[in-house]
């Protein structure tokens, strides 16, 4: 039996007195494609950072492919939210993509030929190979985001985590990205935070809604009810300020 890709059990997390996540549990099987929805400030990015090991839960446990998040870190790829940081940094698209090849076991070694091939291949997959030597500051926001996706792909991840990957993408690549992710999903488990309900309805296999607590739907196909729920979720939660139960229409299935 395959280990679950992600296993989150009773996780709580606070910044000081501000509780961000409360008793969050869900299990994601390998090969799944999870879309995480929820209002801004609802804890989506915090949940992602917990799964990546960047933050530690106050309570509860998180296993990634059966390991602790930091032990599994060579098996996951990560595309952060927003790319508008450090734009003056003297670094090229290729050097960023190569970062995906770094790991603890290769500490202090030079990049190998394979590393370079993988990094170039990843840039080619996101259509950025022509810009391999371009300075990061000269790329557009959308191009930078593609380079960040390439960097995550260069890791050869078993799970790919993306935090609002389409926030600064040009519209035509946005559609490309999701069909690309769908294709990638045949080998890689994908977890994506998004505001794009349309994309969720068309591409993902499971949906989770996060606002302090989490509701997980692992339906194999996206139904109109789920679309309703995805739209309703943030609105509903903002209105009541408390976690809600799954919509009745949904449970009736």
């Amino acid at each position: 039996m395959k280990l679950p890709a992600v296993q989150v059990e009773h996780v709580c997390f606070s910044y000081g007195d501000n509780q961000i996540l409360k008793d969050v549990s869900f299990t994601l099987e390998q090969g799944d494609f999870l879309g995480i929805l929820g209002p801004n400030g609802g804890g989506k990015t915090t949940l992602l950072k917990l799964m990546l090991g960047l933050l530690k839960p106050d309570r509860g446990s998180i296993r990634i492919l059966g390991e602790s998040p930091l032990d599994a870190n060579h098996r996951v790829g990560y595309v952060p939210q927003g790319t508008d940081f450090n734009n003056n940094f003297p670094i090229s698209a290729m050097e960023i993509s190569l970062m995906g090849r770094l790991s603890r076991s290769h500490l202090g070694r030079f990049y190998t030929r394979t590393d370079r091939e993988k990094a170039r291949e990843a840039l080619a997959r996101v259509g950025m190979i022509a810009h391999a030597d371009t300075h990061v500051g000269r790329l557009s926001g959308g191009q930078r985001q593609r380079v960040f996706i390439a960097r995550a792909l260069a890791t050869d991840p078993e799970i790919l985590f993306l935090d609002e990957p389409t926030s600064s993408l040009d519209p035509e690549f946005e559609t490309d990205l999701y069909s690309f992710l769908k294709e990638l999903n045949s080998q890689v488990t994908i977890v994506v935070i998004t505001h794009d309900i349309g994309a969720v309805s068309r591409y993902v296999k499971s949906v989770a809604c996060v606002n302090r607590s989490l509701i997980f739907h692992s339906e194999g196909k996206i139904t109109t009810e789920m679309l309703d729920m995805a739209y309703a979720c943030p609105v509903d939660l903002i209105a009541h300020g408390v976690p809600h139960r799954v919509l009745p229409t949904h449970e009736a299935k």
Binding site: N73, H74, I96, M99, S103, L107
Partner: peptide
């Protein structure tokens, strides 16, 4: 390359397992 990674994007450097 490790110094470059942590200087450019510390979070990512942690995620790939750099100390």
């Amino acid at each position: 390359k490790e110094f470059m990674a942590l200087s450019y994007d510390e979070d990512f450097a942690v995620v790939v397992g750099i100390p």
